[in-house]
Design a protein around this nucleic acid. Structure first.
Length: 484
RNA sequence: CGGGAAGUAGCUCAGCCAGGUUAGAGUGCACGGUUCGGGACCGUGAGGUCGGGAGUUCGAAUCUCCCCUUCCCGACCA
């Protein structure tokens, strides 16, 4: 049955994945294009999804000891340009404000592409002593980057994110922070968004501009492509030196603190869509679903008694579920049940309860799980209190399905030939021993169309195997994939 | 930013090559009715500066030029 549930308005996933993605985003009313080039509008349903994701991550950020604050949107050019690599990396994508009202500004202002520079400039005045460390802060904000190509949620000129920034007395403490926050991203992705990820370290060519190193989580989309879903950077003393941040340690010696930054953006919503969605539309994991349960009453205009019983059952569900579950009864008139089913499937609501006279005669309602279409007749009695458990189950099934996809499309390779063979049929996640020299990265990229080294896996070691590109002893296992 | 495609009703598109009454279809929308366990049907109605600008012409959705936007493939990137 599930296979026949095609949706009128959206392209089939198998026919054209990119069109499918855009169709789902727009038809499910998550987001849309705007008259502003490169900028999207996030519509209420999409924003609700972001809010749930954001709140989950915000809880983790606070749990790990960070506080939220807010920095200016505009950054003076002289502040932006102090860290050489950073400027070089971001300069091509900065928006510049050159005028205020009718006055040309003496110094251009950048619209923040990220806030390390303004934050360092301010903290240079606020950090004086080892007692001032660590500084553990975060901000939720918008940033702007002049991107050449727009993809809703995945790449827009303006996007929403959080950026965490910390300063530490020791290198090790900063390194631990980078790991801690990457693990928060992993937890958000796996436990909330039901997307398994692979943690690892970025290669030199892929790391954040100005960082000593960058860690990332990489998720597999259902077409086998990778999506970098969160990054955590160890900035060493690069910025603190450039921006003159120093403090007196316990021995009264001047020191530059060690710094980290880490970010996760609305891009993750794109990942959620591409990881779980199907030909009927979105599939939203219950923990972040704006609406977790939709109730569709089946009423007959020529049978008032039945209609009354159906409405009573709906009211009962609303009352019993109200406190713990986000449930909505779809009472829209003049719309046939099938149309409502399609409507909510497109929007990815995890559970649907159909309430009709036929089932009610036996004290039952029909329950359908979005992720796999599993359908069952369940007793109305006590259902409200069982919903949370059913949602937890749906969350698990969604996660397991994504894990299965990742497992099925992951391949270990021991040579370039095997790498080429791995991608012959379809995009995969290939893992192979890698020496991490820039020349070898170029070789790997050139071996298969559009692949990149996503990261050096944190969970694997090469065990003395030779690098797939040069044959020298490999120190890492590289995750190689095509990426969004 | 390079290569390709496309912009006509909310959406999907036809009409354009061979310029000519009042620009069409399906779907969606509004109202009425029959219906109602997978996008049902009948009727009525609203809805368009044909992406924008300039030009050619008696006359432009249609021909010419410029611009804008979107999609796809690259390069760049969260």
């Amino acid at each position: 049955m599930a296979a026949e549930r095609s949706v009128k308005q959206i392209t089939s996933k198998g026919d054209d994945f990119d069109r499918w993605y855009v169709d789902v985003v727009r038809r499910a009313e998550l987001a849309d294009y705007t008259p502003v080039k490169g900028c999207m509008v996030i519509r209420p349903y999409g924003y609700a999804l972001w809010e749930r994701t954001r709140d989950a991550l915000d809880g983790m950020i606070k749990r790990t000891g960070h506080e939220n604050m807010y920095f200016p949107l505009l950054i003076p050019e002289s502040y932006l340009t102090k860290e050489a690599q950073h400027v070089e990396g971001f300069a091509p994508e900065v928006f510049w404000v050159t005028q205020g009202g009718d006055r040309v500004l003496e110094e251009r202002l950048a619209i923040r592409p990220t806030s390390e520079t303004i934050i360092c400039s301010l903290y240079a005045d606020w950090i004086h002593s080892w007692r001032d460390l660590p500084v553990l802060i975060n901000q939720w904000c918008n940033v702007a980057r002049w991107e050449k190509r727009t993809r809703l949620f995945l790449r827009t000129a303006e996007f929403l994110w959080q950026e965490g920034h910390t300063f530490h007395a020791t290198d090790d403490e900063a390194a631990a922070e980078v790991e801690t926050m990457l693990d928060c991203y992993r937890e958000l992705s796996e436990e909330w968004l039901a997307i398994p990820v692979i943690k690892g370290r970025k290669t030199e060519s892929e790391k954040f501009a100005g960082a000593r190193y960058t860690l990332s989580i990489e998720a597999m989309m259902s077409d086998g492509w990778a999506l970098q879903s969160g990054t955590s950077h160890h900035l060493g003393q690069n910025f603190t030196t450039a921006y003159g941040i120093s403090y007196s340690d316990r021995e009264n010696t001047r020191q530059h603190p060690f710094q980290t930054s880490w970010g996760l953006s609305t891009r993750i919503i794109g990942g959620l869509i591409m990881a779980h969605g199907d030909d009927a539309g979105l599939v939203i994991p219950p923990r972040v679903a704006p609406i977790q349960v939709v109730v569709v009453p089946i009423t007959h205009s020529n049978d008032e008694d039945a209609a009354r019983l159906v409405e009573e059952a709906c009211i009962r569900l609303e009352r019993e579920a109200a406190t713990e579950v986000r449930l909505r009864v779809d009472r829209r008139e003049g719309m046939r049940p099938g149309e409502k089913f399609a409507h909510w499937e497109l929007r990815g609501v995890p559970l649907r309860i159909t309430v009709g006279a036929k089932d009610l005669a036996d004290g039952n309602v029909t329950l359908v799980r979005r992720v796999d279409g599993e359908q069952s007749a369940v007793a109305l009695e006590g259902l409200g209190s069982r919903l949370q458990g059913l949602l937890d189950e749906a969350q698990k099934v969604t996660r397991a399905r994504a894990q299965r996809l990742l497992d099925e499309r992951s391949v270990d390779v021991g040579s370039l030939e095997e790498l080429v063979a791995a991608f012959a049929e379809q995009p995969v996640f290939a893992s192979g021993p890698f020496c991490n020299r820039p020349e070898c990265e170029v070789t790997v990229k050139g071996a298969v169309h559009a692949v990149t080294v996503r990261n050096l896996r944190a969970d694997r070691t090469p065990d003395g195997a030779p690098c797939i590109a040069c044959g020298q002893p490999a120190g890492h296992v590289a995750l190689i994939a095509r990426a969004y």
